[in-house]
Amino acid sequence: MTKVDDSPWPSCQAQGGRRDFVRKTLDGILSFLQEAFVTREISSKKGLLQSLDPRIKLISVLALVFALTTVRDLRVILIFYMITIVIAHLSGISLSFFVKRVWLFIPIFTGVIALPMIFNVFLPGQPLYHLLYLGPSASLGPFALPESIYITREGVWSACVFTLRVAACVSAVVLLFLTTSQAVLFRSLRSVGVPKVYVLTLEMANRYVFLFLEIIRDLYTAKRSRTIISRGTWAEQRWVGGRIGYMLIKSLDLSERVHQAMISRGFNGDVKIIEEYRIGLPDYLAGALALASSALMILYD
């Protein structure tokens, strides 16, 4: 253990390869930490939405999202989406960041649902573009298929409405999240009747997610620093399984200690939190405007 290997260094070219799945997954999860940092920066800026009471913002966004789900007119949805972009700008959010943040998830989650809609197999309609001629009495197992498969005009329209509606709703929610600090946002859930104990639990869960992420990052960094040869996917999966078990034990131990720390400061099961907000005239005006817009959207449709 005390001998030093002083043989000459091998002369070899460093070779790259595919990144292992653990690294990719962890990078994705850890980007959450960076995003939280960006969110904190934006929420502490001076801007239109940052100046509003969080409860008003929460109720307004909920009302608008609900109204938007009932709207079928593409123009109304488009106008709503444009308004969210203007508000984002007035709240000091970089437009490219805002648009990217919304549209990053749309193809993944909405695309999967909206894509089949455009084919006549799922939604009959006027042909827009012919894809395939199957001939009469075509079938797929027990399911009968149409003579030819094509993209329909109605399908494309419905998919566009659906996708844009999701984008508009996500934009409203993203605006809320970006312009309100997480602590204040959770606390404002009280205004829509969420019990105090859930608010406290949510706050604590959010706080400890960061701690666990840091532990996971350190575990992986320590492993990488001692990894001499790649051991393949199976070994990596085994390592991940082991770490999941370790984190479970760690979280149980931590929860017990956190409970002790709470008891030590007088906690006896009765949740007491400070809720201190002041609603001013601009808040009332913004709330009234959001609620009126929501009502109009529902009535218009």
Partner: peptide, 18 residues
């Protein structure tokens, strides 16, 4: 273990609230 609240202000306020 001891810092379970969302912000420093809430953390300091936790004890007096109890």
């Amino acid at each position: 273990v001891q810092l379970f609240s969302s912000t420093v202000y809430d953390e300091v306020a936790f004890g007096p609230l109890q």
